[in-house]
Design a protein around this nucleic acid. Structure first.
Length: 120
DNA sequence: AACATGACGGACA
DNA sequence: GTGTCCGCCATGT
């Protein structure tokens, strides 16, 4: 486990319920803006670890680009997100601007969505 | 060591 | 808005 992966896990665990972050955003937050693929690889390594919110991570387009897997596929990820209140458009995309989590940027008035951001 | 691939992202057409 | 290409970085063959 590299320090990079450690950082990724640390950040992803801080994403509150009902919110998401993009691979590139996480990489940038860590200090390696070009290592978006590394973040993706880190998630791949975890391969559906249930005790960690891997599903709150998607690409900058708000699209689930995860590869089709048996245990943790795109369907599973979308289902988990919708279960947290994330609305998907056309059944496969979501409003990134609306649900993206900003660790430092203080969450805006997301409360109007009716989501309980205090729920970790 | 070299080449191909990938849970990415941004620039272009 | 969609499809393709190129750049990045790590891994697998």
């Amino acid at each position: 486990m590299t320090s990079f992966e450690q950082s990724v896990l640390d950040i992803v665990r801080k994403i509150p319920k009902g919110k998401v972050m993009s691979y590139g955003q996480i990489a940038k937050y860590i200090g390696a803006p070009k290592a978006s693929r590394e973040v993706g690889w880190a998630m791949h390594s975890l391969g559906g670890t249930s005790n960690f919110p891997w599903w709150r991570v998607l690409n900058s387009k708000g699209k689930i680009t995860i590869k089709e897997k048996s245990d943790s596929g795109p369907d599973t990820q979308q289902r988990l997100l919708e279960a947290e209140g994330v609305e998907f458009d056309n059944g496969h995309k979501m409003d990134m601007e609306k649900y993206q989590y900003h660790p430092e940027g203080k969450t805006h008035q997301i409360s109007l969505l009716g989501l309980d951001e205090s729920g970790e």
